[in-house]
Design a protein around this nucleic acid. Structure first.
Length: 273
DNA sequence: AGAGGTACCTGGCAGC
DNA sequence: TGCTGCCAGGTACCTC
């Protein structure tokens, strides 16, 4: 499941194969993704030269001299670099054929992903314009979270998973960060102190940075095997470990459902206070 | 404005 | 063996 660290790993992995290449062709086998792949993408991207690849939250922004390709991997999407002789398999929905005779291939079994196109500033695109700050920048910190949370009665877990508050924190990292910060996931966001928010912001940065480091080493051979999940799995404190022993205090981990999402936590290490 | 719920989609698994 | 049903996940969008 591509969360921010994996998207960043993908970005670094595809950069050397894509930068300064001309798009020779685009093959769209399945246009029905999260949204229909726009006709403008098919008509405008062939011939474009790829200049830069940015990331905003979990969105990849492939900037060309004609416009920007906006890619979201959704839940099950992956990108691979292949040679043009590779035949498409199941769920290989889109290929970009490049002037270096490589293919950027998008595979997405659940089709929650997206391929969009804009000729304007991609950061002003409706999907991106109202996103919260990047978690790994200095302006995301405890002070910020504290200020934003004053009027929010929702649970702290749902609060940090809100893209308008901060991007890139999905179900896994929200659970892990709350464990590291010692905060009960069901605590109301407006009842948490500034000091605890500082610890939470630090925990989010720590867990994401760590995952990027691990992801970066695992997916080194990007053209051979992309998007192999599980690299982070052995390091998880709580996610997916309900009814197992807490790795810190050996208490039995409990499960809650918050916003229809499974939430595992340690009743002893994580307090509402 | 904020909170809660729903939809989208498929593979994998449990249970019958 | 095959069927059914549920779950996982991100996030836009709907309603209250």
């Amino acid at each position: 499941m591509p969360e921010l660290p994996e998207v960043e790993t993908v970005r670094c992995g595809i950069i050397p194969h894509l930068i300064n290449q001309r798009v020779k062709a685009v093959y769209i086998r399945q246009p029905r993704l999260r949204w229909l792949v726009p006709n403008e993408l098919a008509s405008q991207i062939p011939g474009a030269i790829i200049e830069q690849i940015h990331r905003r939250g979990k969105y990849l922004l492939i900037q060309t001299n004609r416009g920007t390709l906006i890619i979201h991997l959704g839940m099950s999407g992956s990108l691979r670099i292949l040679s043009t002789v590779d035949i498409a398999g199941k769920h290989d929905h889109i290929d970009l054929k490049l002037s270096n005779n490589k293919l950027l291939r998008f595979n997405d079994p659940r089709r929650f992903g997206a391929w969009l196109w804009t000729i304007d500033d991609a950061l002003l695109h409706p999907l991106l314009a109202s996103l919260g700050p990047e978690p790994l920048t200095p302006n995301f910190n405890g002070e910020y979270l504290y200020a934003k949370s004053r009027s929010r009665k929702t649970t702290i877990k749902q609060f940090i998973m809100d893209n308008q508050i901060v991007v890139g924190v999905g179900n896994i990292y929200a659970s892990e960060a709350l464990f590291l910060a010692g905060i009960h996931p069901a605590q109301a966001a407006n009842l948490i102190s500034k000091q605890r928010y500082k610890r939470l912001a630090d925990s989010i940065k720590q867990i994401l940075n760590y995952a990027i480091t691990v992801g970066g080493t695992t997916i080194r051979n990007f053209s051979d095997s992309a998007g192999k999940p599980g690299y982070f799995k052995q390091q998880l404190w709580v996610y997916g470990r309900k009814l197992q022993a807490c790795k810190k205090c050996e208490s039995l981990l409990k499960e809650l459902r918050l916003g229809q999402r499974s939430t595992v936590f340690c009743p002893k290490c994580q307090k509402k206070k």
